[in-house]
């Protein structure tokens, strides 16, 4: 089902973006912040790689020269105090920032080697492959089945409308498979399989959030971006989501923003710490970042001395 076609219509091999030309050349930007360790070496090709990413909302700088490489099939946690730009960074990875008119993005973000900010990029294809789960559960006011099948139907993966039925191209069986598989992957199948036609708004908050994860999985993404997916949930629902995230990492690349440092320590393979001003201060293996941070400021933050 995965479409492995190129994201861009005519993707150039050189991924430098023209916009970079306008960016002031401040290669020595980090001289004033020597307390920054972001070189994290891992084996294999990065799934996502970000180079020199700046984001401005009008005159406010939300992200300042972020460079990071995210390995595949792992959980990457983004932590940091409120307003440090974690969510902005996450939203750059599937270009959800395009929906905010004031946001200005400079720098390169490459997904599997292709610049996602190049002209001619197919946003539909990008967001199919880089899915997103939001902070507050946001199921559509539709039935559980319609929620899950929404993406596949809209992308033409399955055709179950009246015309398809009349012309004998009914994919209802395939749709049922997708619905069941997605709900099982999101560990919610057992709870809802007898009421797939009930409205999704009747589910509890934790169930709704797992439903949203299932909805995201139904379009068969490769990367799942999660923006504090458990912050609106109670501890039991949170635990379920955390278990789910760890399972998902066996197949998918998960990038998760969280306020909860214990959560990051529990579930992530590598952790990136953002601090005030939209700067990435430290990035490395989770154990190392939490137990032996190289940056004094990160240590202060993790031990609760600030932030």
């Amino acid at each position: 089902m995965t479409d492995t076609s190129s994201l861009g219509a005519n993707a150039p091999t050189d991924t430098t973006v023209a916009e970079n030309a306008d960016r002031p050349q401040t290669t020595d930007r980090h001289e004033d912040t020597p307390d920054s360790w972001t070189d994290y070496a891992f084996e294999g090709e990065p799934k996502l790689s970000v180079d020199g990413l700046d984001v401005h909302y009008g005159s406010d700088q939300a992200l300042d020269d972020i460079s990071i490489e995210i390995p595949e099939q792992s959980v990457t946690a983004l932590i940091g105090p409120s307003g440090c730009g974690k969510s902005t960074f996450l939203r750059c990875l599937n270009r959800m920032n395009d929906r905010i008119r004031a946001a200005e993005v400079d720098g390169t973000v490459t997904f599997e080697g292709q610049d996602i900010y190049q002209d001619g990029l197919d946003l539909v294809e990008l967001r199919k492959r880089v899915g997103m789960v939001f902070q507050a559960p946001n199921p559509f006011p539709k039935s559980i089945r319609d929620n899950i099948a929404y993406g596949p139907r809209k992308h033409g993966t399955v055709q179950t409308d009246l015309l398809a039925k009349l012309t004998g191209r009914d994919d209802s069986d395939q749709e049922d498979e997708i619905v069941e598989r997605s709900l099982r992957q999101a560990a919610i199948w057992e709870e809802v399989n007898d009421r797939l036609d009930d409205n999704a708004l009747g589910l509890s908050g934790g169930q709704q959030q797992r439903l949203c994860i299932a909805r995201c999985l139904a379009v068969d993404p490769e990367v799942i971006l999660m923006d504090e997916p458990a912050s609106a949930l109670d501890p039991i629902a949170t635990a379920k989501i955390e278990d789910l995230i760890e399972e998902l990492a066996e197949e998918y690349t998960v990038v998760i923003v969280t306020h909860n440092m214990q959560q990051a320590a529990r579930i992530s393979d590598q952790t990136a710490v953002f601090l005030t001003g939209g700067r990435l201060v430290e990035y490395g293996e989770t154990d190392q970042v939490f137990e032996n941070p190289k940056s004094q400021r990160v240590e202060d933050y993790i031990t609760g001395k600030f932030g």
Binding site: V124, R127, H155, C216
Partner: peptide
Amino acid sequence: EYRDASAALGVSRWETIRSV
């Protein structure tokens, strides 16, 4: 949130308007 959710699934704006 509905529009965000739909956009994050890669659904175009018009399809989002029509279906959500």
